[in-house]
Design a protein around this nucleic acid. Structure first.
Length: 281
DNA sequence: AAGCGTCTCAACCGCTGAACC
DNA sequence: CGGTTCAGCGGTTGAGACGCT
């Protein structure tokens, strides 16, 4: 069902629903003390409730959610109404599985923003913060269980480089048993284990970090607004803001990210975008 | 077919910050 | 300036769906 027909159906149902609900409310109020607080409903929304809410928003616009109950008689709290509207009823919502492009964008955004689902949602038209959160948590859990890194290489590599370049002074990176080499040849960098001073000098200031991201991350997903800098946690657990913005401090602990050992784990294919292990991503 | 475990996602809860009085 | 209300955010929960044995 497309958005238009859904809306039409909702509006059509609204009138009937409103009548029914009015009756219910009246019956509920009958014989009650005036001071008795309205018992608000919880749990899944019915089509009738949806229709009422849609109708209300059409008439009064979004916002003032606490007035919805008063005006429509809908037995839901404002919070619940706002959530229902935002996540399910508002127009132009995109439902269904995330596309490969969206998956990669979510990973990229998560790497930059951390668990700022609402901010991430602003970059994914039609997707809600709740949807993104659910998507990410589900896959994160799955990947964690499978022992796979959280991020695809396009996202993970800049993070790893950033971490090793900038925070070598705080705590020298541990060289993995395999003696891994971060090879960002596409970006013109080649880093070797050890985190020595020359590595740290590769990226001297904050702008270089952003530049590195720009160089490595594909341009397929232009940001509608510049993403705030991530706050990276060093090995001691101290947070260091990359740009010093108080407004959007994002705690992004990259310590759990394993150093990329091979590209083998990240072969892109249709069924599983981030690796070659079916059913994991 | 039944039982069980896992997954998904809608909805709720608690908290925070902004706006207003 | 403190209290209250409201909107929004992120974390968590629980019911139903699904898959496996």
């Amino acid at each position: 069902m497309d958005a238009t027909s859904l809306e039409e159906e909702q509006v059509a149902a609204a009138a009937a629903a409103a009548d029914n609900l009015d009756e219910e409310v009246e019956q509920g109020e009958e014989g009650e003390e005036e001071a008795t607080p309205v018992v608000l409903k919880k749990g899944p929304w019915t089509t009738a409730e949806d229709a009422l809410l849609v109708n209300h928003v059409r008439q009064h616009g979004e916002g003032n959610w606490n007035a919805v109950q008063r005006i429509t008689g809908l037995l839901r709290c404002g919070k619940s109404c706002r959530l229902r509207w935002t996540n399910h009823l508002r127009p132009n919502l995109k439902k269904g599985a995330f596309s490969p492009d969206e998956e990669l964008l979510v990973a990229q955004l998560h790497a930059q923003l951390g668990n700022k689902w609402a901010r991430m949602a602003t970059h994914l038209p039609g997707r809600t913060d709740n949807e993104i959160k659910n998507y990410w948590n589900t896959r994160a859990k799955r990947r964690q269980r499978a022992g796979l890194p959280m991020y695809p290489p396009e996202v993970q590599l800049p993070l790893a480089i950033t971490k090793r370049c900038r925070y070598a002074d705080f705590s020298p990176p541990q060289q993995s048993a395999g003696g891994n080499v971060l090879d960002a040849t596409d970006a013109g960098f080649k880093l070797h284990p050890g985190g020595n001073k020359s590595e740290g000098e590769l990226l001297k200031d904050d702008d270089d970090i952003g530049t590195l991201f720009d160089m490595i991350i594909p341009k397929a997903f232009p940001m509608t607004e510049p993403a705030p800098p991530a706050m990276v946690t060093n090995h001691s657990g101290n947070s260091i803001s990359q740009h010093g913005s108080d407004d959007h401090n994002v705690n992004l602990n990259v310590d759990h990210l394993p150093v990329i050992s091979s590209e083998q784990d990240w072969v892109l294919d249709g069924a599983c975008q981030w690796n070659n292990m079916s059913g994991i991503c």
